[in-house]
Amino acid sequence: MGIAVGSWAAGLALASPLGPAGPPAVGTVISALTLVPLIALAVQGPPTRSARSRVVERSTASSTVMDEGDSHTTVV
């Protein structure tokens, strides 16, 4: 879907007054837009310690099973 939309936008840009410079301009804009989520994550900063520990606690609780007769832990 993304390739089709990008090709369509580049075709429109090619038919515009930009002419042959249109498709590279569209590619530049699309490339710049891919940085938006990356910048948003960088501004947000790393997750807090409590958020990370909650994820670890949930995954550990759901994937660890203790056998009553055995002295070892089985990871499912």
Rank of each mutant, 00 (worst) to 15 (best):
V55W: 15
P47H: 02
A4L: 10
T60D: 15
P46Y: 08
P23A: 02
A42T: 09
A4M: 11
T28H: 03
T64R: 12
L14Y: 05
T60K: 15
V5C: 04
I3D: 13
T48H: 05
R54Y: 00
P37K: 01
A4I: 13
M66D: 12
G2T: 10
L14K: 08
T28L: 15
I30V: 11
A13D: 07
A13V: 05
S63M: 15
R49D: 10
A10L: 02
V65M: 10
T28Y: 02
T48I: 00
V75M: 14
T73Y: 11
R58C: 11
W8S: 10
G11T: 07
L12T: 04
G27S: 07
G19H: 00
S63W: 12
D70Q: 13
L12N: 08
A13Y: 00
E57M: 14
A40N: 03
P24R: 07
T28W: 01
G19P: 01
I39K: 02
P37T: 01
A4C: 01
T48L: 02
V26F: 02
P47V: 04
S7Q: 09
S59Q: 14
A32P: 09
D70R: 15
S59A: 13
S7D: 13
S59C: 10
S63K: 10
S59D: 08
R52V: 14
I3M: 09
P46V: 14
V55F: 15
A21K: 03
S31M: 12
G45H: 11
S62Q: 14
I30W: 04
R54W: 05
A32R: 03
Q44P: 00
